[in-house]
Design a protein around this nucleic acid. Sequence first.
DNA 1: CGCCAGGACGCCC
DNA 2: GGGCGTCATGGC
Length: 270
Amino acid sequence: MKYSVKGNDIIVSEPDLDLDETLDCGQAFRWKKIDSVHQCTYSGCFLNDRLTVSQTRKGEFIFHDTSEQDFLSKWSEYFDFSTDYSALKKLFSDDDTLKKACAFAGGIRLLKQDSWECLVSFIISQNNNIPRIKGIIDRLCEHYDGKFPTAAQLAAETPDSLAYLRSGFRAKYICDAAERVASGKTDLSAVAKAPIDEARKALMEIKGVGPKVAECVLLFGMYRTEAFPKDVWIKRVLAEYYPAGFPEFAAENAGIAQQYLFHYIRNLEK
DNA sequence: CGCCAGGACGCCC
DNA sequence: GGGCGTCATGGC
């Protein structure tokens, strides 16, 4: 990644990034495409910081109204710019299916999201479709002045008071997660550093968090790249292309490989 | 209308 | 331990 400062913007050159593939691939639900005519532009948030970012036709990225300091300390981290995705894709290309997946959607990067927001988002994601997940999270943030509510804020709610979300049976799970995190029974920052099986176990103590949601929180909210969420799509990939198991050489970064495969198989069947 | 969705739970055997 | 019905809601 190379960058330069231009007025109030940061101009970034990074071949292994595509905004559509990264911001609208089902790992984060709060990025909105606000322009697709002039150039590809998204607006979204990380914690309490909002960003508008564009991808130009030349393949450069404009981080609008961003100081160099904020770019380096926040957004460069969030977009995982310190990781060499070319090297990862080269590693993955030893496997034929992964090679195809990387060629198809090589602009996906793993976003380093907030663990609490990720936990709630993927609780909402269960047995749900992406447009509706986005709608529920939209209504949730709208209710808190455009910001994602804290665990303490949600701990004050009940499934009834959350009826406006239209989240169905998931409301009681959101409440349990909020109560556990706000009270300290679940310490997300400790979970993030724990050995992975211990971390899985701790997350699954929360009602509504099973193996899939726990794995998503570990991968998308705690940057545990060895986490490997198995949703209905990935299960199809595993059954069809990896009957003998997922290749060991990719185990350390299985979660990132999973992102390429998820996008690949979903679009293959359209 | 019916089928499905980046699943988990409760109950059964 | 594995199998199966159920759970709200709405996109398609």
